[in-house]
Design a protein around this nucleic acid. Structure first.
Length: 114
DNA sequence: ACCGTGACCAGCC
DNA sequence: CGGCTGGCCACGG
């Protein structure tokens, strides 16, 4: 229980089932700090245990992926999620999001819910 | 021991 | 409708 917020974030992220994704804000809320979504991202980038914490299952509220992602290369995160069964949706004609090829996770079906 | 910084989200003007 | 700021925590130099 004396774990820091970061540790609790890792614990929550580890609980994300395969084929499902969670938002930074949701992880923050489950970690006990609904206003600390910023630090969730930082926590994962600051000291993620390689091969243990599925950081690739954590996405933006919009469903887009994190910039500067480094599992093995940009776009690798998307392929990992697709491999797990996460569905992606094509970008809107007006909305073009760089860093994710414009493709977003189908939050309507793949967002992790308790 | 202090200050700065870091994968966000939502409210406000 | 759009852009900007605030909030929150831990860790490195």
């Amino acid at each position: 229980m004396s774990e820091t917020f970061n540790e609790q974030v890792y614990d929550v992220v580890r609980r994300i089932p395969r084929g499902r994704v969670a938002t930074y804000g949701q992880v923050a809320a489950l970690a006990g700090r609904p206003r600390a979504a910023r630090f969730v991202g930082f926590a994962l980038h600051a000291n993620p245990e390689p091969g243990v914490i599925p950081c690739h299952r954590v996405v933006f509220r919009d469903g887009s992926l994190a910039p500067g992602f480094a599992f093995g290369g940009p776009g690798e995160q998307r392929r990992l999620l697709e491999t797990e069964g996460v569905m992606f949706v094509p970008p809107d004609d007006d909305s073009v999001n760089a860093g994710a090829d414009g493709w977003r996770v189908d939050m309507a079906q793949c967002q992790w819910r308790e």
